[in-house]
Write a protein that binds this DNA or RNA. Structure first.
Lengths: 135, 135
DNA sequence: CTGTATCCTCTAAGATACTG
DNA sequence: CAGTATCTTAGAGGATACAG
């Protein structure tokens, strides 16, 4: 049978998806653990921002990614999108209570990152040094 | 000049990298915000595990991803790798203190995810329902 | 058993150009 | 200004086979 490989792939994928369904917290973890998500939430920390302001605050984010990230956050009820119908259009984004509660977690992550930045950097140097010595 | 597009790409990439260097916490955030990282750390929660045990605990993780995730965690000083030279080889992984401190953050994330799971799901349904109504 | 190397696929994300 | 659509690409990640 020639389809064996592809069938196995399908099966594996199915199993994977099944496990995701069984543990729904993972879905959220995945949705959260995107670079842009954290950056957007942090940017919205102290009040609503317009789309263009968000772009300024998050250099490196393409418009496309920003929009799609915001859509996803909106869908999850983490940010609120308010459109003012004028010419030109104006849209503001702000955190929902749920978004703010997540922001607290992200703050903890950020804090941890800042506290452990140096240690991790040192560890990397050490590790790379060893690998180099044996190669 | 025919290289304009590619040059722009390079330039943009450079700017992006530059901003990463300027805000080193982002590097850590990126390193952390991988699905496998969180799953591995959670798996190591209550004590050392062998490579094969980790695979059992994390269905869906290919050997390759598991190994490379572990390597990265080891490099960052988050897990410790202990090799017992026998036949067959035996390797155990355990959390370092730094890894345990990160695990606390991940626990908070997990807790948040579990608390907000239902709300997010509801929000998604609502959102999708609206989009459907207008299409 | 643990790990590496190879190949291959598919998705995330950037560039670009266009609409309301 | 905000958003969408299209094309393209780099890289993450899986399958497989093999080595120590």
């Amino acid at each position: 049978m020639t389809l064996t490989a592809e069938q196995k792939r399908h099966e594996a994928r199915q199993n994977y998806n099944a496990s995701l369904v069984l543990c729904p917290a993972r879905q959220l973890l995945e949705a959260i653990s995107s670079k842009w998500v954290t950056l957007v939430l942090l940017a919205l920390e102290d009040g609503p921002l317009r789309h263009s302001d968000l772009r300024k605050r998050i250099p490196g984010a393409s418009q496309k990614m920003l929009t799609s990230t915001l859509r996803s956050l909106e869908r999850d009820g983490l940010v609120l999108r308010h459109v003012t119908v004028s010419v030109p259009v104006r849209t503001d984004y702000e955190l929902t209570p749920r978004g703010q509660s997540l922001l607290r977690i992200i703050f903890d992550m950020k804090e941890w990152a800042e506290e452990n930045m140096d240690g991790v950097a040192a560890s990397r140097l050490e590790h790379d040094r060893h690998r180099l010595a044996f190669s």
